[in-house]
């Protein structure tokens, strides 16, 4: 499994440049929590909605035509 993933990753590098979900290679570090766990009680949808709303602050057209 590991080898396969790595191979895939390697091909991806060589082929480069196409948007696709990428596997993690053989990451050997600590596992990280999902970003919506600590402050959003694990509610992914709620977290995503919060980010989407917040993202609009980067668009001043929302406040000034």
């Amino acid at each position: 499994m590991k080898t396969l993933a790595l191979l895939l990753a390697a091909t991806a590098v060589l082929a480069a440049c196409s948007e696709r979900p990428q596997s993690v290679g053989d990451y050997r570090g600590k596992t990280d929590a999902k970003p919506y766990e600590a402050n959003f009680g694990g509610d992914k949808a709620k977290w995503e909605a919060a980010l989407r709303a917040r993202n609009q602050n980067q668009n001043e057209y929302k406040r000034a035509e």
């Binding site: 990753a9 991806a12 440049c17 196409s18 948007e19 990428q22 053989d26 050997r28 990280d32």
Partner: peptide, 16 residues
């Protein structure tokens, strides 16, 4: 998307 750093790291410390 295809992060080269991940591919080359000898200790495989990257994740996505």
């Amino acid at each position: 998307s295809d992060a080269p750093c991940m591919a080359v790291c000898p200790t495989d410390c990257f994740y996505r």
